[in-house]
């Protein structure tokens, strides 16, 4: 099981993870933090669950994770400063923090897939689900959910991108406590940087995005669009170059052609 003392020693943050909730089992860590009636308010609160019964991805796709082997967590971002122009950059900062932590600890070469998947050897090692709740026209709560495959080695089911884990790539079981602390340490730095200097965060993200310059297709529902992945703009939109010119895309599943 997760050793909170070991985690706490490695955590160097000011506020991210300082309010830490650990649960054995929960429906979804994102849902827990998004639900106002749970009365969690502190900016940077982290909830880590050993097992999620209804782990989710984009559009209610499921996220399965074996109990006690991986990291499934959510971070509450409650400061109003996050809800402005930096919002999209903060989304990118989450996947960047996961990628940097994996690189630092295990020297694995990571790749970031727009908008926020983390890959190693072309396989998906982590997924991010960013969710917010607005009352009327104003954002009230923002939650970053992270699912990172750590020590799981068998994955059952059908996947659009083959899954992998740190154990599969690194070759041995690793300590989840230090890895989580490292992700949160890096994320807090990137969060500050995203507010002060979002272009630097975006640039670091782009350095790990190996699809820029390639021919891609973007699928959403039954529709596909083709072109060259020209760049990512300052707001995080994908710029797709085709015969029609350059289009700004803000959603869809991207794959190489």
């Amino acid at each position: 099981m997760f050793n909170i003392e070991v985690f706490d020693i490695k955590l160097n943050t000011d506020f991210i993870g300082r309010n830490f909730i650990y649960v054995e089992e929960i429906d979804s860590t994102n849902s827990y933090l998004l639900n106002k009636s749970n009365k969690v308010k502190a900016d940077g609160t982290v909830i880590l669950a050993e097992k999620q019964n209804r782990g989710r991805g984009r559009k209610d796709r499921s996220w399965y994770s074996n109990k006690g082997q991986n990291l499934t967590l959510s971070i509450l971002l409650a400061d109003k400063r996050y809800f402005g122009k930096s919002l999209n950059t903060i989304n990118f900062a989450v996947s960047l923090a996961v990628a940097e932590a994996i690189e630092n600890m295990f020297q694995l070469r990571t790749e970031l897939k727009w908008p926020n998947d983390v890959l190693v050897n072309k396989r998906k090692i982590a997924g991010i689900l960013f969710e917010s709740i607005s009352a009327g026209s104003k954002i009230e709560r923002l939650v970053a959910g992270i699912g990172l495959n750590v020590n799981q080695t068998l994955f059952q089911g059908q996947f659009s991108i083959e899954p992998t884990s740190i154990k599969l790539e690194f070759g041995e079981s690793v300590e989840r406590e230090r890895l989580l602390a490292d992700i949160l340490n890096i994320f807090e730095e990137l969060l500050q940087q995203s507010l002060l200097n979002p272009a630097v965060t975006m640039n670091d993200w782009k350095l790990r995005c190996r699809m820029i310059g390639e021919k891609i297709s973007i699928a959403e529902g039954n529709e596909s669009r083709y072109g060259i992945f020209e760049d990512i703009d300052d707001d995080g939109f994908l710029l797709l170059k085709s015969k029609k010119g350059i289009e700004r895309i803000h959603y869809g599943d991207v794959s190489l052609r």
């Binding site: 999209n88 727009w114 908008p115 960013f130 009327g136 954002i139 803000h250 959603y251």
Partner: peptide, 14 residues
């Protein structure tokens, strides 16, 4: 309203 995998759920305020 979704943008770049940020799923923003909008609730009524009235």
């Amino acid at each position: 309203v979704e943008a770049m995998k940020l799923m923003n759920e909008i609730e009524s305020d009235v």
